[in-house]
Design a protein around this nucleic acid. Structure first.
Length: 105
DNA sequence: AGCGTGACGAACT
DNA sequence: TAGTTCGCCACGC
């Protein structure tokens, strides 16, 4: 099992609609914390299960970031493209356009 | 309580 | 532009 904080992170990720992505910073802000590290650490230690589309979480640099799943970032990229999120040279295409901010919905 | 680590971020050089 | 440093929060030892 995990901590409440961890659970909170998954919940935020679960709110990301298909074809959209968000950033660790956005999640941190959504949770009300400034430690994006805590978010990243939490997600990384999570059971990156298909129940939690962790692949929709990307760093603010518009790239893919990391992934502890099988295939690493490559797998993440494949998943994103499968949802309509195009990735070019390891970077999210129209990242700002598909970026999902919480509170908007 | 302190230290180290981590799927990051922003600032600085 | 790329590489480095510090900072941030949470968790494990």
């Amino acid at each position: 099992m995990a901590t409440e904080f961890q659970r909170r992170v998954w919940e935020a990720i679960a709110r990301i609609p298909e074809g959209r992505v968000t950033t660790y910073g956005a999640i941190a802000a959504y949770l009300g914390t400034r430690g994006v590290r805590a978010v990243g650490t939490a997600v990384g230690k999570n059971p990156y299960a298909p129940e939690v589309p962790c692949h929709r979480v990307v760093p603010s640099n518009g790239k893919l970031g990391n992934y502890s799943g099988e295939g690493g970032a490559a797998r993440k990229e494949a998943l994103l493209e499968s949802e309509g999120v195009l990735v070019k040279d390891g970077k999210i295409v129209d990242f700002e356009r598909i970026f999902y901010g919480f509170e908007k919905e």
